[in-house]
Nucleic acid binder design. Structure first.
Length: 317
DNA sequence: CGTTTTTGACCCGCGC
DNA sequence: GCGCGGGTCAAAAACG
């Protein structure tokens, strides 16, 4: 209970999840517009969708609906970021290209949500706790740190920490738990998920000074999908050894975006055919960002259309 | 032998 | 204040 609320407030991980559920239970056609079964989530989503309908590039949603699938498999990537509109948008693009691992063909359904809450009060401390805690611990004592002393520090830092790293979450239909995204990750934890038989794994980018983390868990609602949540942004390009020779271009300009991971790497494993099956993409843009970045959004939108014409062509006037 | 994974313990905020 | 649950640490084990 508390968890759900917390997650929703902080980022839309849970919301995403919910969206996914909606799809499963109600039908992909209704996805973005239907208020989900979950009350709280539904409210959040619907309110944002309201903006989307007005501000997002027209047709994106509709396109999706028209193309609605008869499909058996689809993606429902969703994400939200608080401070990086570009990344968010790019991510949406990449969603479509998200590969389906181990399955014969898949319909990809993309839905993007951008959380624009400017402040991160909704935030959780968790994100940076790891780094901070660790640093403090080591700083205070060698091994065991003094908890009381730390608490004082924490209180102080907690304030600063309210700033949360942008997070991106999405659902991928795959049999593989840990999707290859080009970066190197080291697993640093695993926890059982409440009400789910599937554990949640925690990964950290192994590149020095890169504090990007990601969580991976399988949906208990639909074990065929995996929910991945990225946190923060890479401050380095994809490790050379892992980068695809076929698609190295975008890496330089987008490497700092978790979203870009997929743009960069997707081509390695998905084909044009996959793209053509993309039923639709939904872009949600928070009003706050919309105002500030509307222009850029338009530009990106154009870019998107170029990259994924199959997703947009139906919408074209 | 260096790196990654496993896994129980620990920390922390939140709700009750 | 306590318990819960998410998130992280870190020692040991596993891996290549």
């Amino acid at each position: 209970m508390s968890n759900e609320t917390k997650d929703l407030n902080n980022y839309h991980y849970t919301s995403s999840y919910n969206h996914y559920n909606n799809i499963n239970n109600q039908n992909i056609l209704n996805l973005p517009y239907v208020s989900g079964p979950s009350t709280y989530n539904a409210n959040m989503i619907s309110s944002q969708i309201g903006y989307d309908l007005q501000l997002s590039p027209q047709g994106v949603y509709e396109s999706g609906f028209e193309l609605s699938p008869s499909s058996t498999e689809f993606f429902n990537p969703s994400f939200d970021q608080q401070n990086d509109f570009h990344n968010a948008f790019n991510y949406n693009t990449s969603n479509k290209s998200q590969e389906v691992v181990g399955s014969g063909g898949a319909i990809i359904e993309s839905e993007t949500r951008i959380s624009a809450s400017p402040s991160s009060e909704a935030d959780h401390h968790h994100d940076e706790d790891s780094g901070k805690s660790l640093g403090e611990r080591e700083a205070d004592d060698g091994g065991k740190y003094d908890q009381r002393a730390q608490k004082v520090v924490k209180t102080k830092k907690t304030e600063e920490k309210k700033q949360r790293e942008p997070r991106v979450s999405f659902v991928t239909k795959t049999e593989v738990e840990h999707l290859e995204d080009g970066y190197r990750w080291r697993k640093y934890g695993q926890k059982a998920v409440k009400n789910s038989p599937y554990p949640r794994s925690y990964y950290r980018c192994t590149t020095q000074k890169c504090n990007v983390k990601k969580r991976v868990e399988r949906s208990y609602q639909d074990p065929t999908v995996v929910i991945t949540t990225y946190e923060s942004q890479h401050n380095h390009p994809i490790p050379t050894s892992r980068r695809s020779a076929l698609f190295s271009g975008p890496a330089t300009s987008n490497y700092n975006s978790p979203v870009s991971d997929f743009i960069i790497n997707t081509p390695r494993s998905f084909s044009n055919d996959d793209l053509l099956r993309v039923p639709y993409a939904a872009v949600n843009v928070n009003a706050n960002y919309q105002q500030q970045q509307n222009q850029e959004f338009q530009n990106d939108y154009e870019l998107l259309k170029d990259m994924f014409p199959s997703v947009f062509f139906k919408q074209e006037p």
